[in-house]
Write a protein that binds this DNA or RNA. Structure first.
Length: 563
RNA sequence: GGCCCAUUGGUCAAGCGGUCAAGACGGCGCCCUCUCAAGGCGCAAUCACGAGUUCGAUUCUCGUAUGGGUCACCA
């Protein structure tokens, strides 16, 4: 019985025998899996996408970006979004790796339909969704390749491999295991059997039918048509531990799981010829690809990919710790993905981001610098769009995790805190001073005696004596029930009493006639109550604080001024 | 180095042969205003370079430069 090698020539090697030698424990064929994992019944437009990270640490902002794009593409088309775990490299694997990825994704509101949908939960009919649990599936496909003479065991050692590399470097040849360098390609059955029997470790390599002077071309969903030389390297498909490399796992999994669109980082673009070749050799249809540009970071005036090691903001946990609202981060990312997201946001002030129609061909194909300033702006607007109650809920949720003291203060009196978050929160032009929850403490420190340090900003144009006089007078005029305009009228009266202008305009017309104006007077009161010259609407602050507290603060300020 | 990809203001970017080259963030200024934050109005700031093609190039072609990615039993 003879087999055929990749070149179609009759070979003395019996590939079936080799396949059985290598994979005696595998009795299934790829066809068997076709019935285990039948074709999905989804609409024609429905896209099946996946996010396939390896559990090597925290979720990267670039990973979140890729996951978001994939999730959008799936869900906007009525398709499915899968989370698959690529844990084929046990050396790099990290404890709780899967949990950390899930935490990140779920925390940002990414909805997963299939695969790891929640902690310790795998859902879906195409599992397992963890590659380490799929070993025999890959081996089955690998066996098939061996049967067809398209894959072979390679016993080369690391030293031999690096020797090859040295020669190739010296002669400026394409590096890799190919052509005349692929020593193990032509091993006879007996040689292989002998090596295996003597316990030599080996990997399984693809017998690449590629030719250097042929091109493959494919259409990338983001970049358009790309043409590259065919792969000629006999890449490793199964490592010596029987676990597949990324390339092979990708091909097998995405075929079996019915992935229609592979969306991943553009670092994969150069592996496309390998992947396409594998699909071809296995007789499978390749999915559509889209490669997204990495998120970059400014570095010494240059750009570089944002890095897990160097940049704290690379980790998705950073945004949680800082207290950026999750929706703000997602909207920033969406903004980076499609320039017209901001038009959508302008036109639909309160719509959820999932209502935005993301378009693949609007994605930029060069990496964008991550802009924390812009993120902050988006988050400010996001928070400004929330009701006081929602701000309260989100703020305490954050504080509970990262600022226990603030948490107890905020939850001590919910109505008080909600009222506080309501300062200037009128729907037409809400206050926009908080971009992330860790700014709450400072923004509202004057609302809590525990945070109020009793330091006073200086008020320009007003002497200590005048200030003291104003405060003393004000104590008698203060009506805690006055509405905003009555409250302000009182201040005008006070201004008049101490010889200050009732109106700012009046003062501006004739600055010599007055030592200052109502604005200065109100600032004296503001500093007495809050310690600062800058604050949200003072009237609201005073009302929320309550008369006793306000009087207490005024007395305290008078004492401070007396010193 | 080979192979891919990219290059419009400080940043994100629109643009698809003829535009005073959008918009957003940031910056600056003015207005509004009890202080801020907002809001309104305005200003400054961009087509990497060199050849072509064309009546006309930011747009098309080719080079150059610069930047990025990739060349593992890592993904």
């Amino acid at each position: 019985m003879f087999g055929y090698n990749a070149h179609g020539k009759v070979d003395i090697m019996d590939y079936n025998k080799l396949a059985d030698l290598l994979f005696s424990h595998i009795d299934k064929t790829p066809a068997d899996y076709d019935s285990v994992y039948p074709k999905r019944e989804l609409g024609e437009e429905a896209k099946v996408t996946r996010f396939a990270p390896s559990p090597t640490g925290f979720l990267h902002i670039g990973g979140l970006f890729a996951a978001l794009i994939s999730e959008r593409i799936a869900h906007q088309s009525g398709g499915r979004f899968i989370l698959r775990i690529e844990d084929t490299d046990k050396k790099r694997e990290v404890e709780n790796g899967v949990e950390r990825i899930l935490e990140g994704l779920l925390g940002f509101g990414i909805k997963i339909d299939e695969g790891f949908t929640d902690f310790d939960v795998q859902t879906g009919d195409y599992g397992p969704y963890k590659q380490s649990e799929r070993a025999e599936i890959y081996q089955c496909f690998a066996k098939e390749l061996v049967k067809k003479g398209m894959a072979y065991p390679c016993f080369c050692t690391e030293d031999e491999l690096s020797a090859i590399r040295e020669v190739q470097e010296a002669e400026k040849l394409l590096p890799g295991y190919w052509g005349q360098f692929a020593k193990c390609r032509d091993l006879s059955f007996d040689e292989i059997k002998e090596k295996i029997n003597s316990g030599l470790p080996y990997v399984l390599r693809l017998k690449s039918p590629g030719s250097e002077d042929r091109k493959v071309s494919f259409k990338d969903g983001i970049r358009g048509k790309i043409e590259m030389p065919e792969n000629i390297v006999d890449v490793v498909i199964l490592k010596s531990d029987g676990i597949p490399t990324y390339h092979f796992a990708h091909v097998v999994d995405d075929y079996l799981m019915g992935t229609t669109n592979v969306i991943r980082g553009d670092e994969w673009i150069s592996s496309i010829p390998i992947h396409l070749q594998m699909f071809y050799m296995l007789g499978l249809k390749a999915p559509k690809y889209a490669h997204i540009a990495p998120i970059m970071k400014e570095d010494d005036g240059g750009k570089r990919k944002i890095s897990k090691r160097k940049d704290p903001e690379a980790a998705v946990t950073y945004y949680d710790e800082e207290g950026y609202p999750a929706d703000g981060v997602i909207e920033y990312l969406l903004n980076l993905a499609n320039y017209n997201f901001e038009d959508f946001r302008k036109a639909n002030k309160n719509a959820h981001w999932s209502e935005f129609k993301l378009e693949m061909n609007k994605m930029s194909n060069s990496g964008a610098l991550f802009d924390l300033v812009k993120l902050n702006d988006i988050c400010k607007n996001k928070i400004a769009s929330y009701t006081s109650e929602k701000v309260y809920e989100l703020a305490i949720e954050w504080a509970e995790k990262y600022d226990k003291e603030l948490f107890t203060l905020l939850t001590r009196d919910k109505d008080f805190s909600v009222a506080m978050f309501g300062f200037d929160r009128n729907p037409d032009k809400p206050r926009k001073d908080i971009g992330k929850w860790n700014e709450v403490r400072n923004a509202f420190s004057f609302m809590f005696d525990e945070l109020f340090d009793g330091k006073y900003d200086e008020v320009e144009n007003v002497s200590k004596e005048d200030a003291k006089k104003m405060l003393e007078l004000y104590k008698d005029m203060y009506d805690e029930n006055a509405d905003n305009s009555a409250w302000f009228d009182t201040l005008k009266d006070l201004a008049e009493k101490v010889g200050f202008a009732r109106e700012v305009k009046e003062y501006k017309k004739n600055p010599e006639a007055f030592p200052g104006h109502v604005g200065d007077v109100s600032n004296v009161l503001r500093v007495a109550v809050t310690g600062r010259t800058k604050s949200p609407d003072l009237c609201s602050i005073m009302k929320t604080l309550g008369k006793d507290k306000v009087i207490e603060r005024i007395d305290r300020a008078i004492n401070a001024l007396a010193i």
